[in-house]
Nucleic acid binder design. Structure first.
Lengths: 246, 246
DNA sequence: CGTTTGGTTGAAATGTGTCAAACTTTGTGG
DNA sequence: CCACAAAGTTTGACACATTTCAACCAAACG
């Protein structure tokens, strides 16, 4: 079954199974979670800075991003979320959100009450650890983004972002060979990379001219994976994927 | 008792108590943790990228930083750690380290075996949650650093870093009025802010000339807290300190 | 003391931002 | 199904923040 149509619970189960085999009881508990499905329009906020949610959500279709506005109105995106991610899991232990999360594309999400998650963690400590682990990987990605924005030039930054998205999408079965669906505007990428949209445009042209990538509508084709990695200075260790996936 | 001389366990207890009151059993368990103390020289690595440690450590004296080198040999610091922090807690659930951690100043640290921490989390789930929470706050700080490096100019970045360090040090009792001990070289700050050392030097001169801060040897004096916050566009919410501390 | 480390300064180079306009694609209502 | 509007992309010229390079200075230190 293609990942794009799998349910939120199935995606979470698949991801956890890649770390350790789930018992039947654990798997049953995950499938029994009371979920409230919702469809979100593109560009809509799902949660906002300052909110104190009593639930968190799992993304089953589409892309979301975590972002914040500067006092001078400049937006910085700190993370992209793919199907299977739980973008605001942090709210489980940090009552007030310090960032907003918005849908980049139309999304299908599944809300889960915090109480249900806490109950799950109490009854199945390994699931609790697995969720903790997810938030730690998020942290590792944040760290890598600091390196990216702080110490790489525009082509390196862009290449690094593309490498990351390619590997993460492949890990959840959303890559088709050497191409991925990437419905991001250049303005979105600019906000993620700390660049202007104009410069993102020029940088993408560079990467295309260098034969590293090309685009067909909204799908990115990786033409030269080794070269893209080299340009990006990309080492996937920080994604903590299964050894065979990296 | 001044924080600088408190033990690792006492610092951790103090921090957790600020979120919820610890039971006597919980407190006893924390004090009973088998710790191995170590003194680290300045500039020494404590753990290195790629390591697979069987223990983590708590910082009781001094400053450490999490960093990584780019392929072209440029260093980016992603976090500073103060007494009471557990800088590599992530290794509890992510076997391979994706970053290195080094002492900026001479440090006193306390190693704790992962098994002991896991056992503690099993017996006292609230302590487990509190540790998880700590790693989530680390994540929130990483996110804010992405904003800082991505979307603020040099004076804003520097001011923001100083605001954060001031608040965090105050929260663990290491501020004296409006001043803090900040034994960082300008090169260290440059690596944390994604700037060159030369530009850090000029930026600090600006902040001093604007009357926001001044230095007396290795201690920073905040001359105009409101002004510094304004320059930094600083909102301490992301630090998730107790309401009264913010 | 000489040596090292860290701080300061100046001049020139450069990567990226800004502004403004044109172009292209997508979506939509008549 | 066309016409138009809206959104996104591309281009050029110019401004400017930050880097680089190089030298010099000051403080700490063995």
């Amino acid at each position: 079954m293609p990942s794009a149509s799998r349910s939120a619970a199935q995606l979470v189960i698949a991801r956890m199974s890649s770390v350790f085999p789930l018992s039947t009881a654990e798997e049953a508990a995950l499938l029994d979670l009371p979920l409230q499905l919702a469809d979100i329009r593109a560009d809509q906020d799902i949660v906002r800075e300052g909110d104190r949610p009593t639930q968190c959500f799992s993304l089953s279709q589409g892309f979301t991003c975590t972002y914040k506005f500067t006092g001078e109105g400049r937006r910085q995106i700190m993370a992209f979320h793919l199907p299977g991610d739980m973008p605001d899991l942090q709210s489980l232990h940090l009552p007030a959100l310090d960032v907003s999360i918005a849908a980049i594309t139309p999304c299908r999400i599944a809300y889960i009450q915090h109480d249900a998650v806490r109950d799950l963690c109490d009854r199945f400590p390994r699931i609790g650890s697995a969720l903790w682990r997810e938030t730690l990987i998020d942290g590792a990605i944040f760290r890598e983004w600091i390196v990216n924005v702080g110490r790489r030039d525009a082509p390196g930054r862009m290449a690094h972002l593309l490498c990351e998205l390619f590997m993460r999408l492949r890990a959840v079965g959303l890559a088709e060979g050497d191409s991925i669906a990437l419905p991001f505007t250049q303005a979105v990428m600019a906000d993620a990379l700390g660049l202007s949209t104009v410069h993102v445009n020029r940088t993408l042209q560079e990467l295309r001219k260098a034969g590293l990538v090309s685009w067909k509508g909204e799908t990115l084709i990786v033409r030269d994976w080794k070269g893209l990695q080299r340009e990006a200075d990309f080492d996937p260790a920080y994604l903590h994927l299964r050894p065979d996936a990296a």
